[in-house]
C-alpha cells in the first residue's frame, strides 16, 4: 500500500539545538502510527514539520505524494491536524466553524453542505452545531474540533497529544475518531503520553528520544526489545537511554 505520510531524513534545528535529527518513517493508508517519547524528544516539532508549520533544516516531508515544502497549500489539503491546545472560534457557531474550514480547504458549496451534514451526523453534533462554540461544554467543543479537522475528508490525520488535556469522555471521542479513520483507510499519526491509548489503537509505534527514532515496532515488539512487561515499562526503558 502506498504511503500517505512520509518523512525522509528530516532534521530541524533551533539555533544550536537539534530538535529533530534525521527522522524517517512512513504511514500508509489504514495504518495508525503512534509517536512516543518524553517531553522535548522532538515529537511536536516533527508533526509541525509535517504540517508545514515549521520548515525542516534538511530532509523532506510528503503528504499524499505532495512535498510539504514545495507545495504547502496542496499538501495541506490532504491533512487533518488537531492538537491538545487547538481552540475554537468561540463567537462562531459549530456550523460556521465547519463551513469556514471546509471552504478554506477548497470544498465547493455542494460538497461542503454534504460534508458538514456527514460530519454532523457522524460526530453527533446535531443538538449543538448551531450554537456558538463559547456556549458548548468541553466535550462538545472537542467534537466540533474533530469535525473541523476532518471536514474535508483528508487522507492523512495528524494528532499531537490530542487527549492530553481531556477528561475520559472527551478522550473517547478522539479515540473513536482514530478508529473510524483507520476503518475508512486513513493514515493516522499521533503522539501521546497515554500508553493504554497507544497500545489499544496503534498498529505501529515509534519511540523518539533526542530528536531521533530509537525504537519502532508494534507494542509487543517494543516490550520485547526493551525487556519490559508493559508498554509503560518499555517507555521508561527507552526514555532512560536504553537500546532497542
Amino acid at each position: 500500500m502506498s504511503p500517505v505520510i512520509e518523512l525522509h531524513d528530516v532534521s530541524r534545528s533551533f539555533g544550536a539545538i537539534r530538535a529533530v535529527d534525521g527522522v524517517s518513517f512512513q504511514v500508509s493508508a489504514g495504518e495508525v502510527v503512534g509517536l512516543l517519547g518524553p517531553n522535548g524528544a522532538g515529537k511536536t516539532t516533527t508533526l509541525r514539520v509535517l504540517a508545514g508549520l515549521l520548515a525542516p533544516t534538511s530532509g523532506r516531508a510528503v503528504l499524499h505524494g505532495v512535498d510539504v515544502q514545495r507545495a504547502p497549500l496542496e499538501a495541506r489539503r490532504h491533512l487533518g491536524f488537531l492538537t491538545a491546545s487547538t481552540g475554537l472560534y468561540e463567537r462562531l457557531t459549530g456550523r460556521e466553524v465547519l463551513s469556514t474550514f471546509g471552504r478554506l480547504q477548497g470544498l465547493d458549496e455542494a460538497t461542503l453542505v454534504r460534508r458538514v451534514d456527514e460530519v454532523t451526523q457522524e460526530l453527533e453534533l446535531a443538538d449543538f452545531v448551531d450554537r456558538r462554540c463559547g456556549q458548548l461544554s468541553s466535550g462538545q467543543k472537542q467534537r466540533i474540533s474533530i469535525g473541523r479537522a476532518v471536514v474535508h475528508d483528508p487522507p492523512a490525520i495528524v494528532l499531537d497529544e490530542p487527549t492530553a488535556t481531556l477528561d475520559p469522555l472527551a478522550s473517547r471521542d478522539i479515540l473513536e475518531l482514530v478508529q473510524r479513520a483507520r476503518a475508512r483507510g486513513k493514515a493516522v499519526l499521533f503522539s501521546t503520553h497515554r500508553m493504554e491509548e497507544a497500545e489499544h489503537l496503534c498498529t505501529r509505534l515509534l519511540f523518539v528520544r533526542g530528536g531521533r527514532i530509537v525504537a519502532q515496532g508494534s507494542a509487543a515488539e517494543l516490550r520485547a526489545q526493551s525487556g519490559a512487561a508493559t508498554l509503560t515499562g518499555a517507555f521508561l526503558h527507552f526514555a532512560a537511554g536504553g537500546a532497542a
Binding site: L53, R76, T83, T86, G87, F101, G106
Partner: peptide
Amino acid sequence: GEKERGTLETLLVCPVR
C-alpha cells in the same frame, strides 16, 4: 488572542498562505 486560544494554528494548517 488567537494564539492564546489556540485558533491561529487551525488557520495556518489550512491551504492558505
